[in-house]
């Protein structure tokens, strides 16, 4: 069962991510009064990127990007295998490290600046992810995903604060405005293309696939809030994931990019107020 789930994740996650990205582009375009690209545009983009000439600024960028991809896949596979959620989140930040190193290995002004901002972003979201794991442990008595999804009721009932906090920092991971400092999906980026400035062709395609794995992993964590031992919790979880994703798109389109200081302050304060308080309550009633 676990093997099937992991294999399905490894195969399907990029497709799910790319499809969601396609929807994201259409919805965003409609919000901005445009028609938007076709649904399968992300697939066309990937195909195009892979067909391009292999241009590189150094010899290590490709291998660091590939490592980023593999570690993200490992982090996601751990979640979908029902393993330890805290370990999965630790691997997630290790994966991010490789992206930062890939960007700074170029020694190029724009990607180095992007890498610096990416580090600030990691620092901003990491307390939330660690507290989130603690929250699941307090609510269910286990760090194991397999135990969390076998609860008689959905964990969102006891940890709504964590969901709010996680929604807040998820904007960083999905590279959504107002927190898309290191690199942005939008054209108006003051850092050229931030940490992906020096990535071209297949290297950039690999980075995109890795982001799709990450997107699926994030939504998997959202689903974890809703899934319980009853079968009907699964469709509810999927609907909840889609709704959360829609909210992120909405937030992306109504907000302007903030400075790093605002990012750090707001993420840390929201983490403390939502996750921190919710966790405290869980600990007191335990």
């Amino acid at each position: 069962m676990q093997v099937v789930s992991v294999v399905l994740y490894l195969i399907l996650a990029p497709f799910v991510g790319a499809l969601l990205d396609g929807f994201d582009r259409i919805i965003s375009a409609r919000m901005q009064g445009r028609k938007g690209p076709p649904l399968l545009q992300p697939f066309y983009d990937l195909a195009k990127l892979f067909s391009k000439q292999m241009l590189a600024v150094n010899s290590v960028q490709m291998l660091l990007n590939l490592s980023y991809l593999v570690f993200l896949a490992v982090a996601g596979a751990m979640l979908f295998a029902g393993a330890d959620i805290l370990m999965s989140l630790f691997i997630l930040s290790t994966a991010d490290m490789f992206l930062v190193m890939a960007a700074s290995s170029d020694s190029s002004p724009f990607s180095t600046l992007g890498a610096g901002r990416e580090m600030i972003q990691i620092m901003a979201y990491e307390p939330m992810t660690l507290l989130l794991a603690v929250g699941f442990y307090l609510a269910t008595g286990s760090f194991q995903v397999i135990d969390i999804i076998r609860m008689p009721y959905s964990t969102v009932l006891t940890m709504p604060g964590f969901l709010i906090g996680f929604f807040f920092v998820m904007a960083i991971k999905l590279r959504k405005s107002p927190f898309d400092l290191s690199t942005s999906h939008h054209a108006h980026q003051e850092l050229v293309k931030g940490l992906t400035t020096e990535m071209a062709g297949p290297t950039f395609a690999i980075m995109n696939i890795a982001e799709y794995y990450e997107m699926t992993l994030m939504l998997g964590i959202v689903a974890l809030f809703f899934i319980n031992e009853n079968w009907w919790s699964w469709p509810i979880a999927i609907i909840a994931c889609l709704f959360v994703f829609f909210l992120e798109i909405l937030w992306d389109n109504v907000c302007a990019r903030v400075k790093w200081r605002t990012l750090l302050d707001s993420c840390w304060v929201v983490t403390l107020l939502s996750g921190g308080l919710n966790g405290l309550i869980l600990m007191l009633i335990r």
């Binding site: 600030i120 990691i122 307390p127």
Partner: peptide
């Protein structure tokens, strides 16, 4: 939780300085 995040930052930026080609 917060200390791990700050720890990550000062090590990562040092490491990324080293690997700049």
């Amino acid at each position: 939780a917060y200390g791990s995040a700050t720890t990550m930052l000062y090590w990562t930026k040092w490491l990324s300085k080293l690997v700049s080609l």
